[in-house]
Design a protein around this nucleic acid. Structure first.
Length: 241
DNA sequence: ATAAATGTTAAGAA
DNA sequence: CTTCTTAACATTTA
């Protein structure tokens, strides 16, 4: 699950912020050491692909990894959530996710300037983090959560295509202007992802991800696995050079 | 129906 | 000590 989806959750779940937890259950180990029921959900935040729940004096991080999912007021049939929180006005359900207790203050843990969905996101900060990484593939850098927090493989694929950039492009192949453009495009696309996902029309807007033929030239799309991360990369050799 | 994937971490190997 | 590889996690989609 990519960053924009986490932001959407925090927005959809705002009716529960400030509310007391009536009951907490699920298979998360954390429930054995922390009693959440009776505590108040003080804040809901996100950083990249991390969902952050501030509950009483505890700060809990939820990561959905590849297969995780959430529901609000409508649990999945016959499936025990990893974590379920009931409030007086409804409930949230988290499935197949990693639930972790955070011990450090959020501001020490997270640099909000790299979170693509944060109002504090800073292109200058991101650009400065890219300095010295010219030998690395753009495809790997986009997935680096310390640089582009919240970008996942879909965003990576779509950004590379929109910039007409080959998956084998190294950061060092770009001039200053192109580099700037890259940083801005990852940010821009993350927000488009958010808007489209909210409207349930994300897939409709995919230009290359999971496509068999190029929307631009009609040619066949290749799938390559490049860089150190070796994630699936859809590539039109004709349009992305 | 089988495989592969919107992802990360930790352990073990080199 | 650092870097790379592999497995584990576990569900949905094609």
């Amino acid at each position: 699950m990519e960053g924009p989806s986490i932001t959407l959750f925090t927005e959809e779940a705002t009716p529960f912020v400030g509310k007391r937890i009536v009951s907490a259950s699920g298979s998360a180990k954390l429930l054995e050491e922390r009693t959440l029921s009776g505590e108040r959900l003080k804040a809901l935040r996100s950083w990249g692909k991390h969902l952050i729940l501030v509950i009483g004096e505890s700060v809990i991080r939820i990561h959905f990894l590849m297969f995780g999912s959430y529901r609000i007021n409508a649990p999945k049939a016959e499936r025990e959530p990893r974590l379920e929180l009931q409030f007086i006005n409804g409930g949230v359900y988290f499935y197949t996710c990693a639930v972790t207790l955070l011990e450090q203050p959020l501001d020490e843990l997270y640099d909000w300037r790299v979170d693509l969905m944060s109002p504090e996101w800073s292109s200058r900060r991101v650009s400065s983090l890219l300095r010295g990484r010219e030998h690395e593939l753009v495809a790997d850098l986009i997935l680096d959560q310390d640089v582009f927090a919240g970008a996942g493989n879909i965003i990576k694929n779509e950004v590379l295509f929109r910039l007409k950039m080959s998956p084998r492009t190294k950061l060092g192949d770009l001039n200053a202007r192109q580099r700037q453009k890259l940083v801005r495009e990852v940010h821009e696309y993350s927000h488009l992802f958010y808007t489209w996902k909210k409207a349930f029309e994300l897939r409709k807007h995919w230009l290359i991800y999971k496509k068999k033929r190029c929307v631009r030239c009609g040619g066949p799309i290749k799938i390559v696995k490049v860089g150190k991360l070796k994630r699936r990369t859809f590539w039109c050799p004709n349009c992305q050079t």
